[in-house]
Amino acid sequence: MKVSLFVTCLIDMFQSDVGRDTVELLEHLGCEVDFPEGQTCCGQPAYNSGYLKESMESMKHMINVFQDSEYVVTPSGSCGTMFHEYPNIFAGDAEWEPKAIELANKTYELTQFIVEVLKVEDVGASLPARATYHTSCHMTRLLGVKEAPLTLLKNVKGLEFTELPDKHNCCGFGGTFSVKMSQISEHMVDEKVRHVESTKADILVGADAGCLMNIGGRISRTGKPIEVMHIATVLNSRK
């Protein structure tokens, strides 16, 4: 199966190892992965800040970049959600709405793609550790992907899984919120870190680089002995 990777700008620049894990994982599952080189950012930072015009230019660009792809797979629930928002944003635009719908229809978050399209529930990974999972808001509420990451994690050999208390509460990232309202964000992320600690997990797993940068950054600042790991990395572990 041919898959185009939408790696997201955060992973491209700050967590390139997550991108590598995603490629290796998909290839391990028999996919042929290509990386349309023109890709930039889904436009979410500008869109969510109210800069509609600015964001629409990046959206149009991304629509063009992935025009010929059969499947678009992304290791980010939030950026994947953004592609799924494009049809609403271009609603009524005769030229771009159909293209936006086409892109949305073929875009999958990584774990969603593995479970729903590849029909795989055990990727053959193994990682001996105690882990908990952060359910990111856009992925669960807007994209509606709730079970896929848990299904895959539960089949990772050696991984002892504990549910995160109050998992429904946002970690306080919220894109520009994290810098605009950093005082509020601090209290939100602190509560999240307290909950992670309460699970006694060695690893916090998540499917969104933004949330993980936020929670991980706070964990690192406060010196907690918890490793933060993207789900692609967990699923690509063969320890």
Partner: peptide, 25 residues
């Protein structure tokens, strides 16, 4: 600059030594 408000409460990751796209290429 804009990172100041971020790092006032949490660390920011160092950019990857090699961008993903360079690795892929």
């Amino acid at each position: 600059g804009p990172l100041k408000n971020w790092t006032s409460i949490r660390d920011f990751p160092a950019p990857s030594n090699e961008r993903f796209r360079d690795w892929f290429k």
